[in-house]
Amino acid sequence: MNPLTPAADRSLDRYLKQLRLTLRGTSVDVSEIETDVRDHIEQALMDQAHPVSKSDLEGVLKELGSPSQWVPEDEIPYLRRLIHRIQAGPEDWRLAYLCFGLTMLGIVTAPIGGPLLWIPAYFLGRAAVAAAVERDEPLGARRWLVYPPIVLFSLTLTMLLLAGPFVYPAVAGVETGYLDRLVDGALWELPPITHAATVASVMAIAVGFWWLLAAPLSIPLRRSLAALILPLANSYRRGHALALMAAGAVLVVFGAGYLYLS
């Protein structure tokens, strides 16, 4: 090989490393192609002044092109293709892959708080959707990577919002026996079915009160809700809020009625 300047030498090393990485696992003989490419570079630089400068070398490498263009994409192993897409693909594909990757990681690491990763995954998914909208192009195949985290996060948030803050003290009240003490220890003496119905009535009252309170508040906030809970709250209207209030009232009446009568 013609003598190279240190900068050109480093540049050649990087290129050959990329060549080996890209072609490994495909149907071609990597070492033979590396030898061919070295010979090609040697021939191309034969008439250049020595030592060969980085810019002269890069002119030849540019003509050779990126090794990733040399083999059909379907020959490259799937995992490497995936990594390459994340590294070099269009930004909106990178967002989609990262979004889906975080969601999967959240599921795998669920016992150690993995679902918290669904929050960044949700925002990455929203960014991918926004990027597609800005370019006025359909999401296409990316929707399979982007929608699951968005729907997962939105469903979780919807469930938490519907359950409301009153349910948790009610659950805690049953768990800690506080509720039992309120009714002079009678709760645990009830037959199992009656006990379950009593607890359900307490929950119904708690949820019902929350819906009665939250539904009117949700009307002025419906744009924010629609933006946050995509796509579930897209069509949330005043009528839905009224229906939620009515459902809350029914829950309170039934819950209180059962407790009163029993």
Binding site: T26, V28, I33, D36, L64, G65, Q69, W70, V71
Partner: peptide, 13 residues
């Protein structure tokens, strides 16, 4: 020929 390097994997095959 867009990338000259494309020729070498083809020769190899």
């Amino acid at each position: 020929v867009i990338s000259e390097g494309t020729i070498y994997p083809l020769l190899n095959r």
